[in-house]
Computed example of a mutant assay.
Amino acid sequence: MSDKDTSDRSPTPNKGEPLRKFLVVVDGTPESEVALKFAARRALHTNGVVALFAILEPGDFQHWLGVESIMREEARQEAEAILHRLAAQVNDLTGRLPELIIREGKKAEQLKELIEEDHSIAILVLAAGTGKEGPGPLVQLVASAAENAFPIPVTVVPGSLTDEEIEVLA
């Protein structure tokens, strides 16, 4: 079986198998918190778990190693703080602590690599941006050409959903 084979992604795990994961890319935006709440409610209702994924994108200071190192460490600390704050929310909503993942690199590449590596990730949950900038780069990627498709279902929820609307939908 190749690393890219997704045939073992089961929507309902058998006894002894890992629970299916709802993957949420978190970046501190209000939209990512909507995606998190939706994923947490879906996980609760389907006996799944949530995985929170923060991606540290490379900086533009590679010729200033000292500055780049400091900026990278500050970005990691900020991502860890966001992940821990959101993990508490997921725990409150589901009664389970989520998996926390931090990687460095380009968002789309790191996201695809993680999905290919972890076959218990069953669904990617994204929330569309609500600003004039558009739905966001990952949502745009999902909506673009087939060669950018992820090997799992992707749920895109409106970033403007209220907690009450999430409860009804999830």
Rank of each mutant, 00 (worst) to 15 (best):
S69G: 07
W64P: 00
P135D: 11
K106F: 15
Q89T: 14
P158E: 08
A35S: 06
A122K: 08
L97A: 13
A127V: 01
E117S: 09
D163Q: 13
P58V: 03
W64F: 15
G95Y: 05
R72S: 14
G48T: 00
R96D: 13
E99A: 11
G136W: 07
T130Q: 10
R85E: 14
Q89K: 13
E57M: 09
L126N: 00
R85D: 07
A143L: 15
W64M: 14
E147G: 01
E164P: 03
A81R: 13
G136L: 03
E104D: 13
F38P: 04
V156Q: 03
E78D: 13
A79N: 07
S144M: 08
T130I: 09
V139K: 02
H84Y: 13
A81N: 12
K107H: 05
V50Y: 03
T46I: 07
A128D: 05
L65T: 12
Q89W: 04
K107C: 09
E57R: 12
L83P: 00
E57A: 09
T130G: 06
S120N: 11
E99W: 05
A40W: 06
Q110K: 14
K37E: 13
G105W: 00
A39G: 01
T94K: 07
I102G: 01
K112Y: 10
V67T: 11
V34F: 05
G59Y: 04
F53W: 11
L65A: 14
R96S: 10
P137L: 13
S120K: 06
T162E: 06
L114V: 00
G129H: 03
R85K: 12
D60F: 13
I115A: 06
Q140L: 12
E73H: 10
L83C: 01
I123C: 05
V50F: 00
S160Q: 10
V142K: 00
S160F: 12
R41Y: 13
A128F: 03
L97S: 14
L124G: 02
I115R: 04
S69W: 07
D60T: 13
I82K: 07
I115H: 04
L161W: 06
G129D: 08
E104C: 06
G105P: 04
F53T: 00
E164F: 05
V157N: 00
L124Y: 01
L65W: 12
A128P: 02
R96E: 13
V154M: 07
I102V: 15
